[in-house]
Design a protein around this nucleic acid. Structure first.
Lengths: 265, 265
DNA sequence: ATCGTTGTTCCATTATTTGGAACTTAATTT
DNA sequence: AAATTAAGTTCCAAATAATGGAACAACGAT
């Protein structure tokens, strides 16, 4: 009765809200707007119930219902997100250091934090114009195959790390993607020792990165910063050289957090 | 018993979700993270109830609770928003036309749609580099003092317009901001006739714009595009000249929508 | 026009939320 | 350091909202 096909649906302890969030997830993760019947099949709930739930989500602007009766993510989500992003202190403090790092290397720089099993990107600084805002910002990527993700994992205490990794379901994005908890844990240990992480085309073929962990003192933010670029331009040798500047930038961000947030706490 | 001090809280017909969204609104609209007691005062609910509600929101990632016991908007909202934005067809279709308009004028171009009483900005194309992603995108601005907003209002059928305007509470951002339903309605009628709208420093002192309405056939999207810039550079004479290219771009976007969405429907 | 499909409404049953009060923990004062 | 106050958390009977089966309406296709 509780067989989840491939989705990451979990029983949550958040009552009515939890059920609605599962629905919201379902619709926002779809590739295209879903009709009522599609959602019905995916959610596996009685029609009456589902209908009311969707109505409520639409009325609150979290979902939108177009003229053809198809459900899509609502635009009110943008308003919430804009506020969340604009007010995020971690991001504000990191911003100038990301820009410095971008200028020093000429490559794209990311800032991301761990939330659940995902890395959520908070900022992105690109060399040239084509900053397609939201292009990467806000995106949730797996933690086990991104530089920032593995850097973040290296910050976790042993027990939490094992628990988190145990809950992962590995998707093999490329030939280099980790597909077992063992190899991943081994690399995380190594990363914890050396203080920086690589992504050797594990998430996307032809894309490499070097990342360093960043965290706030209260452990509210555990994430990292990375320099990303095409493999033909970023040799592993070059990435090794960049490990130092990335770690330096990370250190400056953490110092900034300490100065800014320390006194108040 | 239902006396709302100054907030925009409304009784909604969305049951438990509605109550939680009011809370989410409350926290995301605050200027700084709120402590439990602060929320308690603002929400005016029993402690036990509020505690559980906040816990649920935090557990779902819609709010975050930092080490000092302060509630802030959650980062999961970014993930939702990124998907909502990335998949929005209206925005995708408009994108190239916004870029054209930006190149033709050299000034900043916006795309926004009406949601409730607000304009939500879906895209922004700036001349120079400083595209601070999310800077404007996702922001909700009042409909009665922005070019895009007034353009959008001019699309509403008479009855809906009156209803909507009746529900507005006018904030006087500058000396030119509309503060009465009468003058606003008069200008909206004028805009409906001529097909374009101005913002004469009504939202922000020193900032002007010219906007044209854009809508989808099924009326799911009613909004507009605008050219915005500093008053010293954008004379009212220049803005009058730009009314034509803005309307042209708007027409091309609507044609694009027709071609893209028409066949399927 | 008719049938099958899709979407909507209704209402007794069931499960969740509610809110007062008791309780624990942290901060402040004497 | 002990006492006092404030802040946050847990508990549970009563009130409220969610549930889901079935009947109903709207639409499309043959």
């Amino acid at each position: 009765m509780d067989s989840n096909g491939g989705g990451a649906a979990q029983a949550r302890e958040t009552g009515t809200l939890g059920k609605l969030m599962v629905l919201l997830d379902l619709v926002t993760h779809a590739d295209a707007p879903l009709r009522f019947t599609d959602v019905l099949a995916l959610a596996g709930q009685p029609r009456g119930t589902l209908h009311r739930q969707l109505s409520h989500l639409v009325e609150e602007g979290l979902l939108e219902l177009d003229g053809d009766g198809r459900y899509a993510p609502g635009l009110r989500l943008l308003d919430f997100a804009a506020r969340s992003w604009a007010r995020n202190e971690f991001r504000m403090i990191a911003e100038p250091h990301l820009a410095d790092l971008q200028r020093a290397t000429g490559e794209t720089v990311h800032l991301g934090v761990l939330r659940g099993q995902s890395i959520i990107y908070l900022d992105k600084v690109e060399g040239r114009q084509p900053v397609r805002m939201y292009s990467q910002i806000g995106n949730a990527s797996p933690c086990y195959c991104t530089g920032v993700g593995k850097a973040a994992l290296s910050l976790l205490p042993a027990e939490s790390l094992v628990d988190l990794v145990a809950g992962l379901s590995f998707t093999s994005f490329t030939a280099s993607t980790h597909v077992s908890a063992e190899t991943l844990l081994a690399e995380i240990r190594e990363i914890a020792d050396q203080g920086y992480a690589f992504d050797r085309e594990e998430h996307e073929a032809g894309i490499r990165c070097v990342a360093a962990p960043v965290w706030s003192e209260d452990r509210t933010f555990m994430g990292g910063i990375s320099i990303t670029g095409p493999a033909y331009r970023l040799s592993m040798e070059l990435l090794h050289q960049w490990a130092v500047p990335v770690q330096l930038a990370a250190a400056r961000i953490m110092e900034g957090m300490r100065v800014r947030l320390g006194p108040r706490r």
